[in-house]
């Protein structure tokens, strides 16, 4: 464990909590892509199957359970409790265009052709594109509430810190997980455009982020 990965995990947890509390307290999921949240719940489900087969550490187990619970709780808020405020019109990204290539690639490019390994690989590839429906929804509506942009900021920060974690681990331990790194770089690139808008608009105190 290193400071980059620990702070990355904390940012990830903060992002998930920000989103959950935003929906819970505003009793609305307007502007939130339910599809992205479904994809994230799928990412955690397919990645954390080893929760029952491999014990890494208390921290690892606790964080996996927390991420799973919060992901499904958020999905249930969007699709059940506050479903009247779910803007399915704007949340129109065709997720099958993500799931099919990701599933296909996880069968082609993996470390070993075993169910657990293929599901893990699927979750790695899927995580790199899971935010796209949310980013697409923001471009479609042309705006995002500032709390939603803070959610995306912490999510992007978590990914950026993971890149630093991999540099550190390669330098310190010679650790290099090619699938995770390549997929993580692609995922972080998707946040670059958002980061630009975030730093130039939201942090300028304009509150809402409106796209040009």
């Amino acid at each position: 464990m290193n400071i980059f990965r620990l702070s990355g995990d904390v940012c990830h947890l903060v992002a998930i909590i920000i989103l959950f509390l935003k929906i819970w307290r505003s009793k609305s999921c307007a502007g939130i892509s339910g599809k992205s949240q479904l994809l994230f719940a799928l990412v955690f489900t397919t990645r954390y199957l080893d929760l029952f087969t491999a014990f890494i550490s208390i921290y690892n187990t606790v964080m996996k359970v927390v991420f799973l619970v919060l992901a499904y709780a958020t999905v249930s808020l969007i699709y059940f409790r506050f479903r009247k405020s779910y803007d399915s019109e704007s949340d129109s990204f065709r997720v099958e265009f993500l799931l099919v290539p990701v599933a296909g690639l996880s069968f082609l490019e993996n470390y070993s052709f075993t169910p657990l390994e293929i599901l893990w690989t699927f979750s790695i590839y899927l995580e790199s594109v899971a935010i796209l429906p949310q980013l697409f929804m923001i471009t479609k509506t042309g705006e995002a509430e500032s709390i939603t942009t803070h959610y995306l900021f912490f999510l992007g920060l978590y990914r950026t810190l993971y890149l630093a974690n991999w540099v550190w681990r390669y330098h310190e331990e010679g650790f290099f997980d090619q699938i995770a790194v390549v997929s993580g770089v692609v995922q972080t690139i998707f946040y670059c455009d958002f980061f630009y808008l975030y730093f130039t608009r939201v942090l300028r105190g304009s509150g809402k982020m409106t796209l040009p």
Partner: peptide, 10 residues
């Protein structure tokens, strides 16, 4: 080979 590594990252 990476798959021998425990998947210790979240």
């Amino acid at each position: 080979d990476p798959d021998a590594l425990p998947k210790d990252e979240l």
